[in-house]
Amino acid sequence: MRAIREKSLISVTIAAVLAFSASILPVHAQTAADAALNMANMLDGAGGGVSSGELIAALQNAADAGQPMAMWQLGTMYENGEGVARDPVKAFGYFAQIANQHADAAPKGVEADIVARSFVKVGDYYKQGLPDAGIPADANRSHALLLHAASYFGDADAQYRVGLLYMQEEEMGVNPLQSARWFSLAARKGHCPAQAQLGDLLFNGVEGIEAQPVEGLMWLTISHQRCSGTADAGWVDEKLNHAISLSTADEQAEANALAQSIAPQFAGF
């Protein structure tokens, strides 16, 4: 009887957290991935004599019931070895399950970001290959999965990464126009590395894109502000400082004025 009661308490805890996470999404414009993190934090402090193993089992039950947030949380736990032994095969399995079951989910739905990120995760595994899971390296499949996340779901990070692929001959082939297109889509969603890459392309100009120093400086300035304090800040600042060294005082003043006036429009969702 005690075992049954504990399992029931765990199930109630999981159900309550999932319901709470879903209920706060529209109010705070929170992503499902953020809600999954909140769910993990709440479970971590659940207490009540429930062990971590029982909580993991409850997450697995929720995942078996088709809860994408539970699958995502388990996938990231196994990928990073957080609370469980690191297991890339299990991580791949959870991310692949999300992608397979929700490939045609509503692009603007509550859990769309988790589905899109799962496509990116699965694409990463295909890029490197995962022999223990019988997954060979397959660049074409990796690209296709990334493109689905970028185009169907409009995921900003996926769009940025597609832009990078079009800068490498060994990936999608060098195509500055395509790079600029994908960087622009991500930049307008507030993705600061994409803003920097777009600004750099526009400032310098490339084949098919005439140099636009003011607009380029504007994007680099916005990126500098948004990337401050992140791991990308160093190379972003290098690009901005290089552009400043080649620009005129009038161009800098106009770019700064534009950046201050329109930056809030591109602050992300």
Rank of each mutant, 00 (worst) to 15 (best):
A3G: 02
I4D: 15
L9S: 12
I10R: 14
I10N: 11
T13C: 14
T13G: 07
A16H: 13
S21E: 11
S21R: 00
H28L: 12
N38S: 13
D44Y: 12
D44H: 12
G48R: 09
G48F: 05
S51P: 03
S52E: 15
G53W: 04
G53K: 08
E54D: 15
L55I: 15
L55G: 04
N61I: 03
G66A: 09
M69G: 05
L74W: 07
G75Q: 04
E79Y: 08
G83I: 06
V84I: 12
P88A: 11
P88M: 08
K90L: 12
A91I: 05
F92Y: 13
Q97W: 03
A99W: 05
A103Y: 00
P107M: 03
K108D: 15
G109R: 09
E111T: 11
A112P: 01
D113S: 14
R117S: 08
S118Q: 01
S118M: 04
G123W: 05
Y126M: 09
Q128G: 14
Q128D: 15
L130F: 09
D132W: 03
A139V: 08
R141T: 06
L145Y: 03
A149S: 09
S151M: 03
G154A: 11
Y166G: 02
E171R: 11
M172G: 06
L177N: 08
Q178D: 11
R181A: 15
W182A: 03
L185M: 12
A187N: 04
G190V: 07
C192S: 15
C192T: 01
L201T: 01
L201M: 07
F203W: 00
N204Q: 07
E210V: 11
T221L: 08
Q225K: 12
C227T: 02
A233G: 07
G234C: 04
V236F: 04
E238N: 11
L246N: 09
S247I: 00
A249V: 08
A249E: 14
D250M: 08
Q252W: 07
N256L: 14
A257D: 15
A259T: 04
F266I: 06
G268K: 15
G268M: 08
